[in-house]
Write a protein that binds this DNA or RNA. Structure first.
Lengths: 335, 335
DNA sequence: ACGGTCTATGCAAGGGCTTGCAGATTCACC
DNA sequence: GGTGAATCTGCAAGCCCTTGCATAGACCGT
């Protein structure tokens, strides 16, 4: 491997001059700068980022701690992150935790060892020791879709309560008064619970009484959506619409409905949540609350960069808006 | 930040002894080793990987160059990669090229600068200058689903020709004799062309004449599948089955069929290729050729590790088998 | 011609860790 | 008790780059 020393010897000048020339420092003679650039090109010189990082104490690397990269949700957020990181000269180290809290902590340690300049954390719950582990890493951390703000950790998220209500309101405006709900796990304080709260709030705002019989708990998988929807069909009177707390479950619901010969949207409207790639692929295409996945990633990264470069943060928590994507699963317009 | 020097001073011993103790070198007194370990724990010491890498000339980082992480196909391969990399002490830097050849080359340079120990490349075509860029990076490279072997670059892939034939054979065995094909781009030598070749080969083996009228070119998107299938329906006699070169297009085909009131699988069988998450989600669930996505990733990483650690490679190219996942889109058994 | 201000370069220390070499200590064994 | 081998530790150089300080030369105004 060819180093600055090689360039310096080649040109009979000092290594430090080479460094300054390559880094566009002032006080370098234009001709010197040019000779250095030429030699670097000719010798196919590649700076050793490791050495530079060691000397400057900045690695230009950020760590991304994520539950499951094979999940469309995370994958798309990741793309948002990688994009703005790269645009700002940062590389990203990918850490897939598979929701294992021990692995999370190990990864945090690893990233600290690797001297990352910052970390984006989007994985698992936040028990005390995970929070402690995050704190013990001395670099900036920002969280996505987690209740980090409570611990003083900058966070970007959506308002699950409001967004769930948005979906339910849409159904209400379509004339539905009996709306079933397939919830996520109700011990999930981040998205399971607030989406239920939003559902209730929207009903209550519309003066529709809440009926626990048409709320069924799922676990965010398609299969659980099938089961939950099947139970929903036994309720009397039967709902005319169903809102599922994510797309997978909504699609599961559609499968259950198909099995029972119930036509969507004619006999039953369905709306989902997330707007992953699955939503546009099913027939009828799913009307759903679109999370701004890319923006969650890019915004978080922008926040992180501000922190890493010592600029302040306006707010410790930024809440992004979702958008209802109307397709065909509720009738009305759309593809 | 606390360093080995701190531990050394704390214990009144030399830095090098600390290093040896921490790295489990022989010839370190057990008691010393214990004292060092204790001090490290107490002071919350974290090794500086950068410095270590600089000294040892091994970074334990691999670069992953990929077209589009938000695509399920790549995301799942990535998971396979990250998993075995992590299990072997390697971190992975994610580089999403968005299929931009210039970006690819920039990323390769970047990774070289970052002193990665190896690179997994799964992005774009292989024009001469990309190959040159790959060669100029002095570390081991392995490719996934590309024709790297031709350039002497270790590769793991599937046999698209054989696997496409597998799908067509399945349809033939089901009794179909008029099978439409929705191809990918025919200028794509990696998967577009060979899948068409496999389609032809299977027909020919079964003594079914090839009819270009029932081959329609798409571009691997769902929309192109809709269009291609629509064209297919005009053919006389109309096909009784359609094989699409990937799941997205197969799903597009199903949409087109639904629009025309043609029932799947009763009036038309459909089979796809890839087995991404989309396949199990549509109704009826899609029968498709399952690429061993995780294995593509893990196998490639294992090969890379062998190369990075100076162990030889048995073969420069390893070809993984796919599996036909039978669901409901062709009738028969399945979910 | 001379002090003063810039500009351009060199020198050397430093970032945290590893490792070959050498010296010191221990141990076993005769 | 002396010898050789084995074990343990220290010294210092080295990995490649950055940067504060110092110096030398250029340039300017008076």
């Amino acid at each position: 491997m060819i180093t600055m020393k090689d360039i310096a010897m080649e040109l009979g000048i000092n290594e430090s001059t080479v460094s300054r020339a390559l880094n566009n420092h002032p006080h370098v003679h234009p001709s010197t700068r040019e000779r250095v650039a030429e030699a670097a090109r000719r010798l196919n010189y590649r700076p050793n980022t490791l050495a530079r990082s060691l000397a400057t104490n900045r690695s230009y690397v950020v760590g991304l701690v994520i539950s499951n990269i094979a999940n469309l949700f995370f994958a798309e957020v990741t793309q948002g992150i990688e994009q703005v990181a790269d645009a700002n000269g940062y590389s990203v180290i990918l850490c897939d935790t598979a929701r294992d809290a021990a692995k999370e902590r190990r990864y945090l340690d690893l990233l600290a060892s690797r001297q990352v300049d910052g970390i984006i954390f989007m994985s698992g719950r936040l028990p005390a020791d995970t929070v402690a582990a995050i704190r013990s890493v001395k670099c900036p951390v920002v969280m996505i879709s987690r209740d980090g703000a409570r611990y003083g950790i900058p966070t970007v998220r959506i308002n699950n309560r409001v967004e769930a209500a948005r979906a339910v309101n849409y159904l209400i405006n379509l004339g539905h008064a009996r709306i079933g709900f397939i919830s996520g796990q109700l011990d999930d304080a981040e998205s399971g619970l607030p989406r239920l709260a939003g559902y209730k709030a929207a009903l209550s705002d519309a003066g529709i009484p809440f009926d626990p019989c048409i709320v069924q708990e799922g676990d965010f998988t398609m299969e659980s959506g099938v089961r939950a929807c099947t139970r929903l069909l036994d309720a009397v009177p039967r709902p005319t619409a169903v809102f599922a707390a994510n797309d997978e479950m909504a699609i599961g619901a559609m499968k259950a409905l198909a099995q029972h010969g119930i036509s969507v949207p004619k006999d039953m409207a369905v709306v989902g949540f997330d707007n992953t790639a699955l939503a546009r692929v099913v027939t009828p295409a799913l009307t759903t609350v679109a999370q701004p996945l890319r923006s969650l990633g890019s915004t978080a990264t922008e926040m992180l960069i501000r922190m890493m470069t010592g600029q302040g943060l306006k707010d410790i928590e930024v809440v992004l808006d979702c958008q209802l994507v109307v397709r065909s699963s509720c009738g009305g317009t759309g593809i």
